[in-house]
Amino acid sequence: MGRLTRGLQVAALAVVLLGTPFPSGAADAVTAYDERAASTGYFREGASVVPGAYQLYLQTPQSLGAYGGLGPRPKIVEGVSFKADAHAGVTDYRPGYGCLDCHAGSEHNLHSARTEVTCRQCHRGTPIAGIFHYYSAMNPIRRHAYVCAKCHEGATANFAAYVVHEPPALAAETAEGFPALYYATWFMVILAGGVFLFFLPFTVGWGFRELIQRIWAGRSHVRVG
């Protein structure tokens, strides 16, 4: 009975391994595009994956969950993020499209604005795998080594927790998705705004008051009490 169970386990493992799509980089070993475009099978198709359900496979750095949960939180991870081809099944998608044709605004980040890094240098070649696909270079378990370290020598998983596509810091939804960024930026904006809001009118008023006093008194210096 024990041997039978063990045999079934090995057979099941073999089936799973054979059925697992290969990484996008290993194009030669792929038999058919449809197979590559299919889901890994680890996650539900189509529907969004609720937070927590995928934690076992995300393998994000421990520190992401630390600091009182103030760090970035993937609120909803789309099912396509786990596919070997993230664009498979997307309505009206054509391989000839440029990234920004659909992902407008994604270029607003330091990597795009300050360097010549292109989308595909991080998200890799055709088909572009979902960033949580098990073999994707962008998967957090290897992102630091396969993506970040191409430029940032010595990058660690902790380093790769930097949010390249940063949410708008002051937008209301960022309070949920990246609380530390939202609250810290708002604090600084209120601090700076408060200083300017007080000092600019006060300074202008001070100058105006001195001017009036000089005109009234006809003195070179202001009258003091």
Partner: peptide
């Protein structure tokens, strides 16, 4: 990054 997670840089 040896001491803090990368998202600290965003902040």
């Amino acid at each position: 990054a040896d001491y803090v997670p990368g998202w600290f840089y965003n902040v």
